[in-house]
């Protein structure tokens, strides 16, 4: 019996879909049988981040309505034979799926997979309710910005009210140079504000944009820093104890040395 984990954030644009794609792929690389479910109906994106956009025939709405068998709607990734995507519908109304249907869908999927990773849409409305309906665990993604942390706090409250217990946090897009200069909240700053367990930290990196351009999750690149961060997160999800990555500032220019001299670091 597998685990159903929803990836959510409240705020849009903090990296939910990228996080879903990378955690899903990293779990598949650990030989887990994984399915990723895109519940952002009308704004389908997980398919392009995974590079599977050309292979969609049926979608989640077809599957829950019985227009096709569930297995027909699951796209098998050719790079990893144990990784699948259930794509969102692009043209249908976002109310096309109900919470009951989502619970039923998740129950079926977890019989067959080790991990069911649900990519939640932004917001706290219908799409959010659907995405969390069948989930047992939640991962909240935030970035070190006031708006994203505020929304994460709200989402944590809503998850607890919906009895999706003990959500865990991923802090995405950390820029070490800015944290060091006092212009970005640190991991500790954010944890002191949000009462939640930390699952992982992911540095801001150009590698993410490049991997999204290619449709190849950055965890597939051994040299990628965010890739390493997501691989660590996947191992933690499998119950391993993996220490947090040490993020290092990238440049050691004259300017940054001068800066550290005056900031006493």
């Amino acid at each position: 019996m597998g685990k159903v984990i929803v990836i959510t954030s409240g705020k849009g644009g903090v990296g939910k879909t990228t996080t879903t794609a990378n955690i899903g792929t990293a779990l598949a690389m650990l030989d887990k049988k994984v399915v990723m479910v895109d519940t952002d109906i009308g704004l389908r994106n997980l398919d392009v981040v995974l590079g599977l956009e050309n292979r969609i025939v049926y979608d989640i709405v077809d599957a829950v309505r019985g227009n096709c068998r569930l297995n027909q709607a699951l796209i098998k990734d050719k790079r990893f034979g144990n990784m699948y995507l259930l794509p969102a519908a692009q043209t249908k109304d976002k109310t096309a799926v109900t919470e009951e249907q989502m619970v039923e869908l998740c129950d079926k999927l977890k019989d067959e997979f080790d991990f069911v990773i649900i990519d939640c849409p932004a917001g706290i409305e219908h799409g959010f309710r659907n995405a969390i309906a069948g989930a047992e665990e939640a991962i909240v993604v935030t970035t070190p910005e006031v708006s994203a942390v505020r929304d994460a706090d709200r989402i944590i409250g809503l998850l607890e009210a919906a009895e999706v217990r003990s959500p865990r946090l991923i802090i995405n897009r950390i820029r070490t140079n800015m944290v060091q200069s006092g212009d970005m909240m640190s991991v500790d700053d954010i944890l002191s504000i949000l009462a939640v367990e930390l699952l992982g930290i992911v540095p801001d990196d150009d590698a993410i944009i490049i991997s999204t351009n290619r449709g190849e999750p950055t965890v597939m690149d051994d040299a990628s820093q965010p890739g390493q961060a997501y691989r660590n997160i996947a191992r933690r999800l499998c119950g391993e104890e993996v220490p947090l990555m040490t993020l290092t500032a990238k440049k050691n220019s004259f300017f940054s040395r001068l800066k550290s001299l005056f900031s006493g670091e």
């Binding site: 006092g182 970005m184 909240m185 800066k259 900031s263």
Partner: peptide, 12 residues
């Protein structure tokens, strides 16, 4: 100017 962790830093 170079940013120290003081009250005025933007993260605070």
């Amino acid at each position: 100017f170079f940013g120290k962790d003081d009250e005025l830093s933007s993260k605070n």
